[in-house]
């Protein structure tokens, strides 16, 4: 019998969707391990959050009333203590940017192994088996844990959010925060630049990725975008290289877009990119690699060299 401690996530006064996904994953894991699902919510309006998090599957909610916003030192300390207090075997957190800012510290503090970005969990057998991807989604792997306790971060959008209402017992956990060990301070937030266009408003996006190879070649996709009266967007490496401005970036750390048509050119379809475009109505992918994960989402595909296809495509509209 092993209990699970899942951790909710919030930012600037709002719970993030992953909080409800981590409940679903935690419930499944707790059922397989034959234990209870505890949920921790640290900081912010903890009572209001606890009310909204009281959904089907949660046995107990622990509120830690420390600070307004996320601070990893507070999270790491509070969760380490709470895990000991409730004697949880598995600590389950979102594989978010903030999750990755405290979960590894919790694992180290508790002396537990950590397995991150998990897409499937199975605790039905002897130990825990976690499925994760490697090599940019080219392969999946199963990893067995030789320990019966672990810290696990789960990938977003792999588990559905829990929905039904719940009847968890809510209690305040009085964490003993060592202020001298809180050596970082969040001073604010900054939105990444507005700029000339809002790609999330576009009906048609022509989106370019690392397959374009050189800055000079961006002209090819720009020509297509112009011919279609579409908007130009990009995957992250194009923006990292300053070939297009940040406001053109689609994905987890860029914009979420939902156009009628999304044409992905030389984009592999990494999870952080897909997070920003999977809601597009019709997805077209042009890629030389028939196994590129972008084809899992695509409605239409061309497996070929973009440098051959693009000139022919532009010609069609001239």
């Amino acid at each position: 019998m092993t209990d699970v401690l899942a951790v909710a996530e919030h930012r600037r006064g709002d719970l993030r969707d992953v909080s409800f996904e981590v409940i679903t994953a935690g419930r499944e894991l707790a059922d397989e391990a034959g234990g209870d699902l505890h949920l921790a919510v640290v900081g912010g309006d903890v009572d209001g959050f606890a009310e909204r998090l009281n959904r089907e599957g949660v046995d107990r909610i622990h509120t830690v009333d420390e600070g307004e916003e996320f601070n990893h030192d507070v999270y790491a300390q509070a969760l380490t203590q709470l895990c000991d207090e409730v004697d949880a075997g598995y600590v389950l957190t979102p594989n978010s940017v903030n999750g990755l800012d405290y979960a590894p510290a919790v694992s180290n503090a508790l002396g537990l192994p950590i397995v991150t970005d998990v897409i499937e969990l199975d605790a039905g057998g002897d130990g825990l088996v976690a499925t994760r991807e490697m090599y940019g989604s080219k392969v999946e792997t199963t990893t067995e844990l030789d320990a019966d306790r672990a810290v696990i971060t789960v990938r977003g959008a792999e588990w559905p959010p829990t929905e039904g209402s719940g009847d968890a017992e809510v209690s305040a956990f009085d964490a003993d925060i060592d202020e001298s060990a809180v050596r970082s301070t969040v001073t604010g937030f900054q939105e990444a630049g507005g700029g000339d266009v809002d790609i999330s408003e576009a009906d048609v996006l022509v989106s370019v990725g690392r397959g374009i190879e050189e800055e000079e070649n961006i002209g090819l996709v720009r020509d297509l975008a112009n011919a279609l009266d579409a908007t130009l967007s990009a995957s992250r490496p194009i923006v990292d290289n300053d070939w297009l401005p940040k406001n053109r970036q689609v994905g987890q750390s860029g914009k979420v877009v939902t156009p009628d048509v999304y044409i992905a050119i030389g984009i592999s379809g990494a999870v952080q990119h897909v997070a920003g475009m999977k809601g597009s109505d019709t997805i077209v992918a042009i890629n030389t690699d028939p196994n590129a994960p972008i084809f899992d989402l695509a409605d239409y595909g061309i497996v070929d060299d973009l440098f051959d296809v693009m000139p022919a495509l532009i010609e069609e509209f001239e």
Partner: peptide
């Protein structure tokens, strides 16, 4: 710190 959704967290780290 680059958070999700094009938001940066501005933080002082000792």
């Amino acid at each position: 710190r680059e958070l999700e959704g094009g938001v940066d967290e501005v933080t002082d780290v000792e």
